[in-house]
Write a protein that binds this DNA or RNA. Structure first.
Lengths: 117, 117
DNA sequence: CTTGCCTCTGACGTCAACGTCAGGTTCTAG
DNA sequence: CTAGAACCTGACGTTGACGTCAGAGGCAAG
């Protein structure tokens, strides 16, 4: 598929897809005229990138991650990095859940007061 | 307490604390010589800011949030904003949990291969 | 009193993940 | 065949949350 379709199916911008390529995250085929051609699996890859970005990983970290995912082969340093990122994301999740609870409290109070008005 | 102590106790930089003040998030007292003096409650406030930043809220959003938290009084637009942010954070948490699972899978495979070597 | 650390204001620097624009090519529907 | 959508390669712009530096003043210990 071409870049516009991939953008539509993943919900990211065309510019973002080209940016991912710049960063070494995606290497689409090219048509004879030079247009990018993506395989079906690119859809899942891009959503994976989005998950990782949402988790606070940088492009470079994701690049480091890719060979681990593609081949499953890792050295000790890579495994340490994986565990470190995992722990960091776990911490972020905890913080977000805290934030959610605090927001829920605020909302509950706000709506109670609004209803009692 | 002075700014350095608050920074140490919250784990954020001195610069960040001054930035929060610029954004209208914190309004510390001042000593006669002009040094910032923070109350105990500032510690919790700052960690709250960090939670919200981690959840992807901007400084301006947090500013909008503060009166809701301090007074509990809200108008309908504010309540809509609160619910929208809540939902957005919920979505982020879901994505992060997905990212965690995917990372866990990668780690499991990587460690199994490393152990089998 | 002076040494060394903390603090002040003001201002410019940074960085990542894109947005946006220019100027040109390619594809597709009618 | 032609209009318009989609695509291409640069290249510069944007934004938020700080980092960093300069130059000056404040404070506790010996």
């Amino acid at each position: 598929m071409r870049i516009g379709e991939l953008a539509g199916r993943t919900g990211v911008s065309v510019r973002a897809l080209r940016y991912y390529e710049e960063q070494g995250l995606l290497e689409p085929e090219r048509s004879p005229s030079g247009q990018r051609l993506y395989s079906e699996s690119a859809v899942e890859r891009v959503t994976f990138f989005q998950d990782m970005y949402a988790a606070g990983l940088s492009s470079r970290r994701i690049v480091e991650l890719l060979p681990c995912i593609d081949t499953g082969l890792t050295d000790e340093a890579q495994r340490r990095m994986l565990r470190a990122e995992r722990d960091r994301i776990g911490g972020t999740v905890d913080r977000l859940r805290t934030a959610l609870r605090r927001l829920d409290d605020v909302i509950a109070i706000a709506e109670a007061r609004a209803a009692a008005r």
